[in-house]
Structures are given as structure tokens and as C-alpha cells.
Nucleic acid binder design. Structure first.
Lengths: 251, 251
DNA sequence: ACTTGACCTTGACGTAACGTCAACGTTTCT
DNA sequence: AGAAACGTTGACGTTACGTCAAGGTCAAGT
């Protein structure tokens, strides 16, 4: 029996057979005078063994270990572990499908809307359309959603809760509009300081605490710099003054 | 912001960021005079976009297409297809886990026992332990299990049904013992022909038909050669005579 | 004898999404 | 000024084969 026959018999390609020879999973058979590999039934049986294990999901390395061990002892361990791994994969896939279903159910399907649905809802509520500052703020929050672990993310979401009441939203929109309006004024304009004070007063106490704390964290401490880099001088000044105000209030 | 900060902020490695640059998924930012990449907030936002899509299970190629398309239109198609793919994966994993559970529940856990449970049961019942010929026969059947498509496999299993009655099994064991006993006799020994005739009579009619038919099939037609190669001359002769008898009976 | 076509041989590159050196330059801290 | 921590490009490793490339072998038909 030559390699093509063997492969067809077991249901693999000739490349696969040669690959297994190369890895030492299947012994090289005798050669014909012309150099062809000449297989016997035992080779087909060995190949079928390997294939059955491979189709269960074992890696070829694991298969070699299992076959070298030549007792069922290790096989049971490996299969048990494999089952646990498959269980984890099932959970991961189920979670991804759940997120997919939530996304597909939503109307505004764009790459930015692929944040988790709860945060997406909060963002939609909080920020008026057409505002450059609101867009920047959304960007920051989406970064938190993407980079943080789930626990931290839930915490952030909870911090936003107080801002979702109708009154808080209305005040927030007004503040955002004032920020947009200050885009091109002089950083020394008195409205800059006034907006900073009003913003500081608008933020829930716990959110203010969290923001100040994050400034001392190596991983997240740069948010203020990152935001001011994207704003006009006056707007950047508003943010800096707001933070200063928060710091003083915290003392 | 340098590459390490960016990576930490979004929760990836610096290698990942550079990889995305290489693929064109993320634009290269400005460089400092020293040659370092200097990132801004917008880069983090873009990277987070890519990451969210990647974590949903999109390939980086798909992500590039989706982002290039810059409308949600293609995204919906891609996500829908992805969901279907995940559903298929879930089914495949569930099937593998079911096979694993069946295997782990069995007592005789060895690489040969990884044939499908129903066939494993049939094999255990049909063949006495300690017989070289029975081992060969089991090998052939396990090859069928591994190489064939499920429909053909079920067909084969059905063919074995008539042999699983207690009387048939007893006769089968006796025939197997006679085959083992003829290992070293002369191929011309009269017991060779007698055993061939008794074997032919023992096989269910439909199995005999299937065996003869398979001899004309390119993929499976070599089973007789493969078996006789592994047997002693007298045993090989038994098999060949049995096939001859079956052929004559079929006319 | 010659050609054709099917099969075989080894060798090497490609795949996906990065991980992990290596060898070397830059910033920052002490 | 030296060391630690960071950055740079380049290249190889991972998994389980697929897919050429460039040729050798073999059976059949002319």
C-alpha cells in the first residue's frame, strides 16, 4: 500500500501522513526499490489511532506523549484536562455570542458602538450629539471600557449612575455646551474659571474621588494630559482648573 | 504617551501595537527626535476599537475591512456571519465533549478504545481476548470507524448486528479459535478449506455482499491483501478461500 | 521504444496573531 | 556618569498542515 492509498483509507491527505512521519508520530515504513514508502495494515492502524485522538482535539504533541506512555493512565488525565478546556471554550463562545446578540439587536451598529451595551446606553444618554467635547469624553469612557478588567468597569459604570437622572443630564448638557462655547476664548477669560467651578460641583463626590485617585496611578494617571492635548488652550485650562478645585475640595 | 503606556492603557502588549502598525490597522504616530513613537489619545481610541472587534472574534483582516468600510453596513454582515460560525463551533465542541464523556465513562481507557462507543461495544462482544486473528479483525473494523463517513459507519455497525446474538458470538469465538490453531499448518491442510467454508457460512448474507462489493472499490478494495499480509500462509489461504466461496455463492 | 498521466520524492514557503530573543539606541534616575 | 528602564528594528518560533516547485517512478497505451 502506498501513501495515497493509506491516506484515502484513513481519510487524511498524503501531506498529513508525511507530517506525522516528520514529527515521529508514525514510523517510517520500508521503501520500495524506487524509493516509495510501502505501508502495511499496522501503519494504517497506527495512523487511525493518531487521527482519532487528533479529532478529539488533542494536539499532536499531546498525542505523542499519550502514545509514548503506552498505558491509559496518562490518557485519562489528558482527556480530563481537555474536557475542562473545552468547557472553558464553550463559556467563552457563549459570552461572545451574548455580546454579539446585544450588539446586533441595537440600531446604531458601528465600530464605536461595540462597547458593552450597558456602557453604550449610559454614553448615549449622557452626551449630546454634535459636541466636540462630548465626543472626547465618550472616547475616554470607551477606553475605560476596553482596557479595564470587568470589576473596574462595573465600578466606573456605578460612578456614572448619579448622572443619569433627567435633571443631572440636563445640567450636564448645559455644561457641555458651555465648554464647546469656550473653544476659542482666551484661557484667562473669567468664564473659564466659572465653568471649572460649575463642572467640579456637577461631578458626584465619588466620581471626583476616583478621578483624583486615578491621577496617581501609573497606568491611568495620564488621562488629564491626554485630554488637554486634544482641547483648545481655554478648554484645557477649564479641565486643569476643575481638577485643582477638586483637589482643594478633597482636603 | 509612549508605546508602553499606550499598551498598558488599552490592555495589550507593545508587540501587539507594533503588529497592528505593521498590518496597517493602526496608523504610525509621530516620532520623537530620538525615534520613539509618540501617541495621542486618538491612537488609544483607535487601538481600543480594534481590540473590541478582535475580542469579539473577528480576524484582523476582517477588522481592517470593517474599519475601511467606515459604515456599519458591512459590520452587521460580518457579525452575523461570525455568530453563525460561533454557533457551529459550539456544536462541534459539544459533540467532542459528548464523545469525551462517553470515553471517560468507560473502564478500558486506551488509545484503541477511542473508537466510537457503539462500535467499541460491538468489538468487545465479538472478539475473544488473546487471539491474534481477533486482534487483526478488530484493527480492520477500527479502521472502518476512523476512515469512513458517519453514514457508512452506521451501515457497517448494522451489518454486525446479526453477529451479536449469544449463539452467533459463540460460533464466532469457535471459528476464531480454529483460525488461531491453523497458524503454522501447511496451506494445503484439509482443515484450511473446511474452516474457509464454515467462515463463509457464518457471515450474514448482507455482510458477505458488502465485503464482496468493497473489493471492487478503489479506496477499500485492498482489505484482503492487507489482512493476508499480516497472517501466516495457511491463515491467509483460509481467507482467500472464504472469499472465493462467497463469490461463488453470490452467483 | 516512447510518451502520457498518475503517482511519488524532498524541500521550502505560507498561514494567524502575536511571543520571544538579539543587538543596540534613548531617557531617566541616582 | 553609570545603571535601570524603556524604546528601536529584525528575525525566528508557534500549530497543523496546504501548496507549490522541481523532479523521479511506474503502469498503460501507442
Amino acid at each position: 500500500m502506498r501513501i495515497g492509498e493509506l491516506a484515502a483509507l484513513v481519510g487524511v491527505t498524503t501531506r498529513t501522513v508525511r507530517h506525522y512521519h516528520h514529527l515521529g508520530l508514525l514510523p517510517e515504513p520500508e521503501r520500495t526499490p524506487g524509493g516509495y514508502r510501502e505501508y502495511r495494515l499496522r501503519d494504517a492502524v497506527l495512523l487511525a489511532r493518531v487521527r482519532r485522538l487528533a479529532e478529539l482535539g488533542l494536539s499532536l504533541d499531546e498525542i505523542r506523549d499519550v502514545l509514548a506512555d503506552d498505558q491509559g493512565r496518562e490518557l485519562r488525565e489528558v482527556l480530563t484536562e481537555l474536557d475542562a478546556d473545552l468547557a472553558r471554550q464553550q463559556e467563552a463562545i457563549a459570552a461572545r455570542r451574548a455580546r454579539l446578540a446585544a450588539l446586533l439587536a441595537g440600531a446604531d451598529l458601528n465600530p464605536d458602538a461595540t462597547v458593552a451595551p450597558d456602557l453604550a446606553d449610559a454614553l448615549r444618554d449622557l452626551h449630546p450629539a454634535g459636541s466636540a467635547f462630548a465626543a472626547l469624553d465618550r472616547d475616554m469612557v470607551s477606553l475605560i471600557d476596553t482596557g479595564a478588567d470587568p470589576a473596574a468597569r462595573d465600578h466606573v459604570l456605578a460612578l456614572f449612575q448619579p448622572l443619569t437622572t433627567p435633571e443631572a443630564r440636563e445640567r450636564g448638557h448645559a455644561l457641555t455646551a458651555r465648554m464647546d462655547a469656550l473653544a476659542d476664548v482666551d484661557p484667562a477669560d473669567p468664564r473659564v474659571g466659572m465653568l471649572a467651578a460649575d463642572l467640579a460641583a456637577h461631578l458626584p463626590a465619588e466620581m471626583a474621588t476616583a478621578m483624583l485617585a486615578s491621577l496617581d496611578d501609573a497606568e491611568t494617571g495620564r488621562w488629564l494630559d491626554l485630554m488637554t492635548d486634544e482641547l483648545t488652550p481655554a478648554q484645557a485650562q477649564v479641565l486643569r482648573l476643575m481638577v485643582t478645585t477638586l483637589k482643594e475640595a478633597a482636603r
